[in-house]
Amino acid sequence: MTYEALAEASGLSRRGVIALERGERVGEVRTWYRVARALDVSFADFMKVLDA
């Protein structure tokens, strides 16, 4: 998935998606929830991956 596609699907900006990936932005829980939904992954599974 491209940054543009993820940004559009999650309602975030392209710059915001890149900042999250790079760790330049922590992001609120609701932000991560939106990313998980955009990726069609359960929030619980998504959080497990982030915690690893």
Rank of each mutant, 00 (worst) to 15 (best):
R22N: 13
R14Q: 15
V35M: 06
A7G: 13
R22V: 11
T2G: 13
R22Q: 15
E21H: 12
L6V: 13
L50K: 11
F46T: 06
R37A: 01
E4I: 11
M1R: 13
A19C: 08
E28F: 07
L6I: 12
E28K: 10
W32K: 00
F46L: 05
G16M: 12
A44W: 08
A36G: 01
V17T: 07
R14L: 11
G16P: 04
Y33F: 12
V29G: 04
V29W: 05
Y33P: 00
V26A: 13
F43Q: 01
V17E: 08
E8Y: 12
V41K: 02
Y33I: 08
S10R: 03
R25G: 02
T2A: 11
A36C: 04
L50Q: 10
L6G: 02
E28R: 11
R25P: 03
E8R: 15
E21I: 09
G27Q: 01
G16R: 10
S10A: 12
A19S: 14
L20S: 06
A36T: 02
E8L: 14
Y3S: 14
D40I: 02
R34V: 00
G16I: 07
E24P: 03
D51G: 10
L20Q: 09
M47E: 11
V49D: 07
V26T: 10
R34L: 07
V35K: 00
V17A: 05
R30C: 03
E8N: 13
V17N: 04
R34Q: 08
G23S: 03
V26L: 12
Y3A: 15
E4V: 14
T31W: 01
V35C: 03
W32C: 00
S42V: 01
R25N: 06
A9H: 03
V41Q: 04
A19V: 08
V49N: 05
R25C: 06
A5F: 04
M1I: 13
V35G: 03
T31M: 03
L6K: 03
R14Y: 13
T31A: 07
V26H: 04
G11H: 07
R25L: 12
S13V: 08
E28H: 05
R34E: 05
R22P: 03
S10G: 07
L20F: 09
F43G: 01
A7F: 06
F43D: 02
A44T: 13
A9W: 04
G11L: 09
R30T: 08
L50R: 15
R14P: 10
A38L: 01
R14V: 15
